[in-house]
Design a binder for these strands. Sequence first.
DNA 1: TTTAGTGGGTTCCGTTTTGAAACTAACACT
DNA 2: AGTGTTAGTTTCAAAACGGAACCCACTAAA
Lengths: 183, 183
Amino acid sequence: MRWEDIDQQVCSIARALSIVGDRWTLLILRDAFLGTRRFEDFRRQLGVSRHRLTERLNKLVENQVLEKVQYQQRPPRYEYRLTEKGLDLHGVILTLGDWGTRWCSDEAGAPIEYRHRTCGHKARPVLSCSECGEPMEPKTVTPEIGPALQQALDAGAGMFPEVGSEADISDKLPPLLVKLLAK
Amino acid sequence: MRWEDIDQQVCSIARALSIVGDRWTLLILRDAFLGTRRFEDFRRQLGVSRHRLTERLNKLVENQVLEKVQYQQRPPRYEYRLTEKGLDLHGVILTLGDWGTRWCSDEAGAPIEYRHRTCGHKARPVLSCSECGEPMEPKTVTPEIGPALQQALDAGAGMFPEVGSEADISDKLPPLLVKLLAK
DNA sequence: TTTAGTGGGTTCCGTTTTGAAACTAACACT
DNA sequence: AGTGTTAGTTTCAAAACGGAACCCACTAAA
């Protein structure tokens, strides 16, 4: 399977990665969240080649993560701004950065810290449950087959459309999901 | 700048991506969180080539995200398990999947849902402040220069070590950080 | 006791993707 | 007329990738 086909999987992570999973893309978005908007600024801050940057920015615009907004005529110049969909990636960036800080920092500590203006404190992001507010950790969370995957399974496929309907689904699915099917 | 050098940046996101930012790697981890542990299972579920899978698994083991545990002798066989460092990526996977569900789903809805056993409800992950518990959103969070970046700036570098000390730092940094320096 | 099958790789080779550098276009400034 | 800025496009060699074939150490079946 080619990387460009991963968005065919019935999986939100695969679909998300098909948009933001390319090299440089999440770093471009990191800078976008820090206020960078123009081609040359992205290029300087990232150290990415012009060619690659053009390609990535275009893909993000195509996928409505960024939008091109004209900021001058003559010569026409556009800047790249986060859309609502793009702003919604804030959590991904924060979570990834927090992991990096916790596991990849040297003695000097965190490169960047965050102040939560709601309470005024320096804060770290914590994942909590939308229903009860308590932390969501690996041991307290169990995945379940959702409607979209159930529909795909009923149609005879696994996470991948190309799995034929007569195939034994169970070895195309991860253990936790197989367990769910057995119940 | 080559992709393999991004871990030189004084940035947690860059460092995190230097470990988990390669193609397939986050999908491997997705399956690991769903209970997959063996080479052949990863390969079947992901559709990735053996060559690539070998390489990615080795890199994850090198970086202590996975560990190899022998599960039989004769012939010796090993399985790949999430370490503490790997388990700590749970938030990244959840957040990314949640974004994918919100922005990349078709009518069928979520491929996978999560039950929070602490409260028993189906739940979505919400990012909240470690200090006050309220939501952390783009408008309520401001980045600040942390100790590690401050140290790099004092030494004359930007996020990139190769920036010489006499360079004008301000155009090597994103706008929000420049604003902080000005204050 | 050959034969087939399984798990976990390695090798090879043609195709894609990438990075660096050079080049272009459309202007503004001096 | 000459120089600079922004935002690209082109070109080309190097690196990464995907798929298929091959390999090795076993086990189980015929």
